[in-house]
Simulated scan of single mutants.
Amino acid sequence: MENMREDVVADEKPRLPSAEVVSKVLSQNSCNTTFMKNAAIEEALREELAAEKQGSVFLQQEMEELKKKTEAADEAPVRTQRQYEELKKQQEESNLIVTRLLTMNNPGISSQP
């Protein structure tokens, strides 16, 4: 082993053994690497969360559109039934008018069989 005096550099700081220098550099790089990995993971998670939020908004809009279509589809039969009832009433009124006209023009014809 070398003498401690020989390990002193011109500025009087002792020189570190190579293994210790490598260990310090690796540990610093390891911390930096871990930090960078964590930062990359965090960024990926943020992007994924943003994509999920955007997908959620899209699904919400789709759901609203389907709800409106369903409401319109539910209203269609009711509207059709009302129209049918109105047409039926008009037909009955027309039949009554035709029957009256026939009885007025032919007094001998009865509306009852």
Rank of each mutant, 00 (worst) to 15 (best):
P17N: 09
P107N: 03
I97L: 07
Q60S: 14
R79T: 15
E12P: 00
A44L: 13
E86T: 13
A10M: 08
E47H: 09
S56V: 01
E64V: 07
V8D: 00
E71N: 09
N38S: 15
T70S: 14
R5I: 15
M104Y: 14
L45D: 01
E6D: 15
E65Y: 11
Q60Y: 06
T103E: 13
K37E: 05
E75H: 10
M1C: 13
V98S: 08
A10P: 00
D74Y: 12
S56T: 07
V25H: 04
M104H: 14
M104S: 15
L87M: 15
S56E: 03
S23W: 04
K53N: 03
A40N: 09
V25P: 00
V8S: 00
E65R: 15
K88F: 13
R15N: 07
R15E: 08
V57A: 08
E12W: 10
P107R: 08
S110M: 11
M1H: 09
K24T: 06
M36K: 05
E52T: 04
A40C: 06
Q112A: 07
K13S: 06
K24D: 02
P77I: 01
V8F: 03
V8M: 07
L59T: 02
Q61M: 08
V21Y: 01
N95G: 03
M1G: 15
Q90N: 14
M4L: 11
A40I: 12
I109R: 01
E71T: 11
L66Q: 02
K24L: 11
S110Q: 04
A19E: 04
P17E: 06
K68I: 14
E2G: 05
A40H: 07
E93A: 12
N3A: 10
I109W: 03
K37S: 04
Q83K: 14
N29K: 06
A19K: 01
S27Y: 07
S56I: 05
C31L: 11
P14D: 00
P14V: 15
A51D: 05
V22P: 00
E85K: 06
V98D: 04
L66S: 04
A10W: 05
A40G: 01
L102F: 05
V9T: 11
K69G: 05
I41W: 07
E64C: 02
S30G: 13
Q91H: 02
R46G: 03
C31R: 12
Q83H: 10
M36I: 06
T70M: 06
K88H: 12
S23F: 03
D74L: 15
E62D: 07
E92K: 15
L16H: 02
V57Q: 01
L26C: 02
N38P: 00
S110K: 12
L16R: 10
K88Y: 14
C31S: 09
Q54P: 01
K68H: 01
K37F: 04
F35N: 11
L16Q: 09
R82G: 03
K88W: 13
Q112V: 13
E47N: 11
S30K: 13
I109C: 09
A40Y: 04
Q28A: 13
